[in-house]
Design a protein around this nucleic acid. Structure first.
Lengths: 82, 82
DNA sequence: TTGACATATCGGGAAAAGTCGATATATTTG
DNA sequence: CAAATATATCGACTTTTCCCGATATGTCAA
């Protein structure tokens, strides 16, 4: 999922509601993942708590997008401690 | 354990048999880890199969040391794909 | 070759992670 | 407000991972 969210336009061409400035909504991710709605929702919330993605509620949809800063920080941490 | 093996002289001052050119022996790692011999042995063999450490049998001892190349490769992979 | 020591492998139980269906909550529309 | 839709949460079950004791293998020294 994190890979997918690197290029939302490419990986979620079916998302019609507006643009991708807020990210991708749960339903789109679920469809692509082939897991149940509850599993995907929980997974996304874990990633969010870990700081890797951010969410924005817009109407009845929740959009998730990557928090690139977290990945940069992790990359540096890994580089210096691995 | 991987952290420990970055500085064997510092982390395993009790190892007396020769130097550290071959790495650290299982018993030393086990003592520091506080896990059973079998657990540590299995763990080390997993890390070896994954390519992160190398082993050298010297007499009745098996010495393990980090394979820095694997860590560099992983670091690059993470950097470019994260 | 036998006994002592170091390590490896095996089988199983406990803990953690992954996944699901059912249901709750939130939002929009009529 | 009621129905429809999207997402979140809960409890249970399954799968995977972790860790152990017992035992096997390999090596050294007497």
């Amino acid at each position: 999922m994190l890979e997918w969210l690197k290029e939302p336009e490419l990986n979620f061409p079916d998302q019609i509601t507006a643009g991708f400035e807020h990210g991708v909504c749960v339903g789109q991710i679920q469809a692509k993942a082939g897991l149940t709605q509850s599993t995907v929702s929980e997974y996304l919330s874990i990633l969010q708590r870990a700081g890797f993605i951010e969410s924005k509620r817009v109407g009845q949809w929740t959009y998730y997008k990557r928090n690139e800063g977290a990945f940069e920080a992790l990359s540096k941490l890994i580089q210096s401690n691995l």
